[in-house]
Each structure stands twice: as C-alpha cells, then as structure tokens.
Design a protein around this nucleic acid. Structure first.
Lengths: 226, 226
DNA sequence: AGATTTACTGAAAACCGTCTAAAAATGTTT
DNA sequence: AAACATTTTTAGACGGTTTTCAGTAAATCT
C-alpha cells in the first residue's frame, strides 16, 4: 500500500535528510550508499520509486539507472546531481531517468516531485468503488444499489464511501469518527449508530441483503455475508 | 507494548502541555527538566522516543543528543527549538536528531511526528496470523479454523490474537490480563479460565485437536501437541 | 491415599453496546 | 422569515457480552 522508495546516496548527511523527510511523509524508505547495493536492493525490493545520486562510489548513478532500465525496472527514477549543464541532463534522461534535481535543492521540492511521479505511476484511488450490488462514484457522488440510485446525504455518503473503500475490513468507531467526522476523540455519542441505521434503511429498502454489519464492541464492516 | 517517551524540557508550562497530550495519546511519558537528568533517565528507562529542547540548563539538547548517540542510543530523537536557521537544523541533525520542530508548534504536529517516528521504528505487526489450522485476520477480525469461520466475541478474539501472536510461547495470567483486559492487577477472578473455555468450545467443535493448552500454575499456550 | 492447590464447568447476574424513535439543534432553500 | 433537509442529541428498550459465583474435577504435594 504505502509506496516504497529506494535512495542510493553516498553522502550520509544528505541521505539522512532525505530518509527522514520521506519517512515523515509516510513512505517506506530504504537507503544504500553505493551503486552495487543499489542494484541488488532495487531488484529484490521492487521499489515504487528510486532516487539516485549522480556520483556514486563503484557505479555511477547514470550507469545504475541504465542497467536497471535494461533489466526491466519500470519505476520512476529521480537523479540528484551537483552539475546542471544541459549535456549532463541529457545524459541522465537518456539513461532512463524520469527527473533531475540539481543540488542544492529544498526537501519540499524533492517531496513534490516524488509525489508527482508516484501519482503518475500509481493512479490515484479509483473514482468508482464497487462491492456486491453497490456502486459508488466519487466524482458524481452518486451511489447505486442494484441499478437503482440511492440518494444520500453528505455524511451518509462519506460513511458508505469509507466502508466501500475497504470492503470486508472492519472499521472501529474511532476510525470512522476520524475519517468521516474528523474528530480525534469524542465523548459518548451514538452518531455513528444513527447514520448506520439511516444507511441501512435506505439500502435495504430495495435490496434484501444486509451489507453493513455490526461487529459488536468494535465497529462496522461492509460484507455480503452475516 | 505502549511506547515510552522521554521529554527533556525546562519550561514547565510547555513540559506540562507535552506531557498531558502524549499521555492522552496513550504513551508512557517521563519528563525531566535538565540535560544531566535527561542523560541518566534515557540510560535507565530506555525510551522508545526522545523529545529534547534545544536550550537546556546544564547541557544543551544538542550536546545531550550527541552524547546519547555516542553511547549507543538508537531511539528516534525530536528536537524542539526557537531558532529556525538552516545552520541550526544542520547542527541538530548532525548531532543525531531525527527530526526538528521549531517553536511555536501545534500539539497536533508534534503528535503526528511522534507517531510517524514510532511507526518507523516499530514496524506494524502483520495483519494475518497463522498457526496450525488457525488463521486470524486483524483487518476483517475474522478467525478461520480449517477453512471454517469461527465467530468470536471481542474478548475471545483479543485472547486468541494474543496467543496467536506468539505461538508456543507461554503467557502468564498476568500477561493475559494486562494485554487483553488492560488490567494491571486484579484480585482473584477466573475470567481467563472462562474465556479459555469459551474459545476451546468454539474451536474444538469442528476440530479434533486441542490448540490452547493449560500450563498449570503459569498460564496458557497455543501449540499443536500436548 | 488423603490433603491441598489449581483449573474446569455451568448457570445466573450485572453490565454494556447497539438499536430505535423522536426531539432538538443546525443549516439550507424558497 | 418560513419551510425544509440535515445533523446531532437524548432516552429507553433490547439483547448479547462479560463477569461473578458455587460446585466439581483434576493435578500436585505430603
């Protein structure tokens, strides 16, 4: 789920910066400090994105990039370099790099590019969610159940969208409260029950099967069996 | 289980804010107000994460950080500072800090970073646990025994989850009470026996082998031999 | 073997979570 | 401003879960 990023950087200080910022942004990060290790790490870990330094001991970032592309690596590659001549840039892109960042650069910039590339490869979450006879369209904010449109309020929609985003996965009350209502904590309230009931009434009015199930003491799930 | 956090902060007001917020988030928090105490507290308590103020009486946070790293402290360190010059940031990260927060900051921000760092160090546990014919899915909160779904109550689930997290490891009654019930102490009660029995009945109804074994005088184990 | 400790069993009691319906509060449209 | 829709709160009923209790069985020790 969370994207895995491989960083090949021999400057320990810079490597540490990059690692901590990427990690903070929620990525799973692996750092190695030379080209050979980069090659094997890339092959075994199958990262979703690679960040390679131009200059590396053993094998240069460009060579590493070329060899990875030659052996079928498709994930986006961002090159880091101290030089900014066009010729170098051409060499890098020619070797198969997708992007090119010249030192010094800000972490914001790196993070922005990482996000952009990952978004491109990993198309954002689908706009259509489906489960059993349920279909939800995030763009039109419409929900259909067995080809019949079900009209929902905002909160009802957000709730079913959450459940539909991970069918069969049990969501705790706290998770629901946080995702749908944005509350971190909330002293006793049965707002969730009220909305689950509203949804059930609307869904089960024209469909015989219960889809939203109560997991007593925990929360709720979307699934097609009892 | 619950992460232990050491806070070294000499401003009593800020220290109190941090302590109460972290405690509310479920962490076990220790607060000291100077570098020397911080050093000894860090060595004796082995915290999972440290929050150090940049400016401290006696020993600065940077020095403290450097000395801790020099003596093998591996836990993530978050520095708090009023300055935000890049040079300081570099000095801090250079001393071995993992992160850096400039005052004033919101508690949400601090909590988010704390969570992020702890998540990195303590990689979350697997969602699927298996042993013998038993399979437990933490996301769907379902337990299968020999391809047959076993429906469990919350406490039953939590108990089998604990046993399943370390098959063949004997759990004492106290451990079970703490992990499943959250009780630290409890005058005589046979809740555990009652729940073990409930689990055995449900599991052994369709499976011939006893998986939960009693270790007399100690507690219980999950294993496939007597 | 008998005494003593420890665990198991079955059922009742207490407790708590969820459902339900309706009213109150809030927001939106006409 | 009135009418309507949505969101949130309130309160009681219901039922499953959790816990306690008392009696029985099994293991350990003398």
């Amino acid at each position: 789920m969370t994207a895995h990023i491989l960083v090949v950087e021999d400057d320990p200080k810079l490597a540490h910066f990059i690692e901590s910022d990427l990690t903070l942004d929620g990525y799973c990060v692996t750092v190695v400090d030379n080209g050979l290790d980069g090659l094997s790490a890339a092959r075994s870990a199958q990262p979703d994105l690679l960040i390679l330094d131009w200059m590396l001991p053993g094998m240069s970032g460009v060579d590493l990039c070329r060899r990875l592309r030659a052996t079928g690596m498709l994930s986006p590659i961002i090159m880091l370099t101290a030089k900014d001549e066009v010729s170098d840039r051409v060499v890098g892109l020619d070797a198969g790099a997708d992007d090119y960042l010249t030192k010094p650069f800000s972490m914001e910039e790196l993070l922005a590019r990482v996000r952009a590339h990952l978004r491109r490869v990993n198309p954002e979450e689908p706009n259509i969610l489906e489960f059993d006879a349920l279909t939800l369209n995030r763009l039109t904010r419409e929900v259909y159940l067995a080809d019949r449109r079900v009209s929902l309020t905002v909160k009802e929609f957000d709730l079913i969208e959450l459940l539909l985003s991970h069918p069969k996965q049990v969501f705790t009350r706290d998770q629901i409260l946080e995702k749908v209502w944005g509350y971190d904590f909330m002293g006793e309230s049965n707002i969730i029950e009220v909305y689950v009931r509203a949804l059930r009434i609307k869904l089960e009015a024209h469909y015989p099967l219960r889809l939203i199930h109560t997991i007593r003491g925990v929360g709720y799930v979307l699934r097609d069996y009892a």
